[in-house]
């Protein structure tokens, strides 16, 4: 299998890292080589977060270079726009349309850009907007929006549905498994 590059982008606290973990676990189970990279530290305080997930027969670099991402998974619309140039020609953007104000916007010293959806659509040939927050709510908790996004992306990957379900069961606390499985399926059917 050629290397698949998935770039996840969001805000600290949105569960970007758990989503990455689901991707990497599924890929390992499918006997693929996997690398994942993120930067911890300052991002924990509500800053921008990106996580790079790469899998295929053999993966060297743990990071995805600009213009190389097959998928850009946006967990928030401004963070999606911030990373659109990372997409390869013909790549796919799947993003959660929710808005989280950066501190500069909240403080009134910067403006949250308008018409983000149009700007994002201008970049990607295939763009899918997902109401992550709404579907998460439908699943039982808006915090499961990250797993909604995993579900949405999963429908584009040649990996069996049962494998995703198995890994969600393994990685989430037992109390949250059913809710997140529901979130996963809502996401999978949303695109």
């Amino acid at each position: 299998m050629e290397t698949t590059n998935i770039l996840l982008a969001g805000v600290g606290g949105q569960g970007v890292l758990l989503a990455s973990q689901i991707f990497t676990s599924v890929a390992i189970e499918a006997d693929l080589d996997v690398k994942q990279s993120e930067v911890h530290g300052m991002s924990q305080r509500g800053g921008s977060v990106t996580s790079h997930v790469r899998f295929g027969d053999k993966v060297y670099s743990p990071t995805i270079d600009p213009g190389e991402a097959d998928f850009l998974i946006g967990f928030e619309r401004l963070e999606t726009l911030r990373n659109v140039h990372c997409l390869r020609p013909g790549g796919t953007i799947i993003y959660n349309s929710m808005r989280i104000n950066p501190s500069t916007v909240a403080a009134g010293v910067a403006e949250y850009p308008d018409e983000i959806a149009a700007k994002i659509a201008a970049f990607g040939e295939k763009t899918f907007q997902v109401d992550g927050l709404g579907l998460g709510q439908e699943a039982g908790n808006p915090r499961s929006a990250n797993v909604v996004m995993v579900g949405a992306v999963s429908s584009f990957l040649p990996l069996p549905e049962s494998l995703w379900e198995e890994k969600i069961r393994e990685l989430l606390p037992p109390k949250l498994v059913d809710l997140n499985l529901k979130a996963f399926h809502l996401g999978r059917e949303a695109v």
Binding site: G46, G47, H85, P102, E111
Partner: peptide
């Protein structure tokens, strides 16, 4: 150099802040 699409410009940053 690989030809890249321009990144979106003039976006407000999202610096970390006090919780």
């Amino acid at each position: 150099a690989t030809e890249l699409k321009d990144a979106a410009v003039d976006l407000p940053g999202r610096p970390p802040a006090f919780c």
